[in-house]
């Protein structure tokens, strides 16, 4: 199907005039995709804003139900993974394939750590009935703290928003892990070079966005 121009490198598709055009197009496509992601999350931020403004006392009471230490740890983990992605791109731009592979693997691991921490957070909530909507039923005592005091009006809404927001975000982290597994494999196979690393760049952009969403989720849910 493809009939590449003889003067173009192999990675350039026949319908592009140049590698540059292909790179620009892919990157612009990615930014557009990121905007759709932002708007997807915006719905949850709207729900958050509206319910917070209606029931500030609920928000004040229930943000203490979330463990800021675990949230903070996850923030650092995700920032670290963003850093390694940026490092990876830096290395491949300079033609250092080994540097790219190491950083990609690190990113993948950080993402894994994030999800493990998330798992512990979720299981603590589920254990004590801090669940969304109709399932909301705080109970049990742990470390001398009675969870039943979290049973405040509109608590179900707080936890609905918490679970949906972090759930969609966690799903994105999972997808990100899949993407990094895929490009790590490509990188090990030697597909990327200083001339061609568009998939790395685009996966990186996606990952940074996932990070940014968390940068907002952390203070909004855990701190204030």
């Amino acid at each position: 199907m493809s009939t590449p121009h003889s003067d173009q490198p192999a990675h350039v598709k026949h319908y592009f005039v140049s590698s540059e055009q292909q790179f620009d197009a892919a990157k612009m496509g990615m930014w557009l995709f990121l905007v759709t992601e932002i708007l997807l999350f915006s719905g949850m931020f709207v729900a958050y804003t509206i319910y917070r403004s209606w029931h500030p006392e609920t928000w004040a009471a229930l943000s203490t139900a979330l463990d800021w230490k675990l949230g903070g740890l996850n923030t650092i983990v995700l920032l670290g993974s963003s850093f390694t992605v940026a490092l990876g791109i830096h290395h491949i731009q300079k033609g250092n394939k080994k540097g790219l592979i190491i950083n990609l693997i690190l990113t993948f691991l950080f993402a894994g750590v994030f999800l493990v921490v998330k798992y512990f957070e979720y299981s603590a909530k589920i254990e004590h009935g801090l669940l969304p909507g109709a399932a909301f039923d705080p109970h049990g005592i742990s470390y001398g703290f009675d969870y039943a005091t979290y049973n405040v009006p509109y608590g179900p809404q707080f936890f609905s928003i918490y679970f949906v927001m972090t759930g969609i975000h966690g799903f994105h982290v999972l997808v990100g892990m899949g993407l990094f597994a895929w490009i790590t494999r490509k990188a090990i196979r030697g597909d990327f070079s200083a001339e061609y690393y568009t998939p790395v760049e685009n996966c990186g952009l996606y990952w940074h966005l996932v990070d940014i969403i968390w940068i907002f989720l952390f203070p909004l849910l855990y701190l204030i």
Binding site: V35, T36, L40, S42, M44, P156, S160
Partner: peptide, 25 residues
């Protein structure tokens, strides 16, 4: 399409969750 369609995505997702888990939004 790019700016608006994601919002119907989150809307029907929330509706889906509302029906499936009664999230009360």
């Amino acid at each position: 399409q790019v700016l608006a369609t994601p919002v119907i995505g989150i809307t029907v997702l929330l509706l889906f969750l509302e029906k499936a888990f009664q999230i009360g939004i």
